[in-house]
Computed example of a mutant assay.
Amino acid sequence: MARTDPPAPRWKSLSLPFQLPTWLAMLVGLLIAGPVLFALAKASTNWTGGEVKILQTVSFSLLYVFGMHFREPQQLMPRSTTTRIFIMFLWLYTIILTTAYNSNLTAFLTVVQAPSSMETVKELHGSGAEVSGLGGFFKGALASAVDPYLQALAERFKAYNELNVVWPNVQSGDSVYLHNRQFLEFVITTQFTRKGVSSMRIMKECFAPYNIAMALQRNSPLKRKFDKAIRWMLESGLIRRWFLESLRLSRKAKEQKDAPEDTSAGGEAEQSPSSGVIPLSIDHMQGAFFVIVFGNVFALLVFLVESCCRKGARKEEEEKEKKEEKELGWSSRMSKKKKKEKMMMTAAHA
């Protein structure tokens, strides 16, 4: 038994419909489509003699392709056949991507994404967590195993005499607890489950599977009848059903003991989500709010950078104008001086 890791933040739901390689492939396609559109528009102008002039700029071509990825209607229609064919297949590509994204986004917004956790003995060995249990029985079982990872876990095994000392370590994630599955399911259901959400879980890999048998006297004539009855109960699922029913009753009894006045309200609260459609709250939509906040902050930073660049350019223009004025003033003074000298030379000659 190990701690259930907290779910992934809701704002990550916007990126979960696609895997990371898919996002990278879409980004590469977005960056390539803009220059390709620009190159086709430029080539069509040179070869066929006519294309929309604004498409012959890299900035507008990138903006045009970016809008197509967000299904933004583009009123500008290319003139050349080559560019139109490229735009047609680009529209088909973006429609498929956006439809797939929108279909998966609804599911990821309403369903909590569970993080990846250790489920095997090898992952448990690599985590470095303490292995705990009641008494030293499981330590001997781990040490006698053939698997080297189980033998290494025997060195980290720590025996306890009371369960109340073990649970805080397991809840903090510093330790895992070894016991049979039925007991662990009972403990999780009765002690670590609140409103249908469990803070503990059972790892998938079992290091020592075993069976439970009923002992009878040797050569007993009842053995075949008992075997037949037990097989019927196993195949029909009665044993599992009775066990789950006992877990439900135990959890209900514990809830009534802990909070008898809130039993009816709690039961209605647990059934309300499954009775109809779940409305999306701010917690579900926090990714969208993060996007708008990030966009506003980014736009503000770009505005500040543009203002600084504009001030620098304006300052350079002013300095250039002053320099030109000085040069003009110096040249005018020089021309006046030369004119005066010329007049003096003419007077002296006369």
Rank of each mutant, 00 (worst) to 15 (best):
R3N: 11
T4A: 12
A8C: 09
F18C: 10
A25P: 00
L30G: 02
L31I: 05
V36R: 01
A41V: 04
S44M: 06
S44C: 11
T45K: 12
V52R: 10
L55H: 01
S59W: 10
F60I: 08
L62D: 05
L63Q: 08
Y64D: 01
F66Q: 11
G67V: 06
H69W: 05
S80T: 02
T81V: 14
T82V: 15
R84E: 11
M88Y: 10
L92Y: 09
I95H: 08
L97F: 15
L105A: 03
A107I: 15
F108T: 11
Q113G: 05
Q113R: 06
A114R: 12
E123W: 11
A129P: 04
K139A: 09
V146H: 14
L150E: 02
L153G: 00
A154R: 02
E162I: 10
P168W: 03
L178I: 14
N180R: 10
Q191A: 07
G196Y: 00
V197G: 00
R201I: 02
C206T: 13
K223Q: 11
G237K: 05
R240C: 09
E255H: 09
G267Y: 00
E268G: 04
P273N: 03
P279W: 03
F298S: 06
L300E: 06
V302W: 03
C309P: 05
G312N: 15
E319G: 08
E324N: 10
M345H: 12
A350T: 10
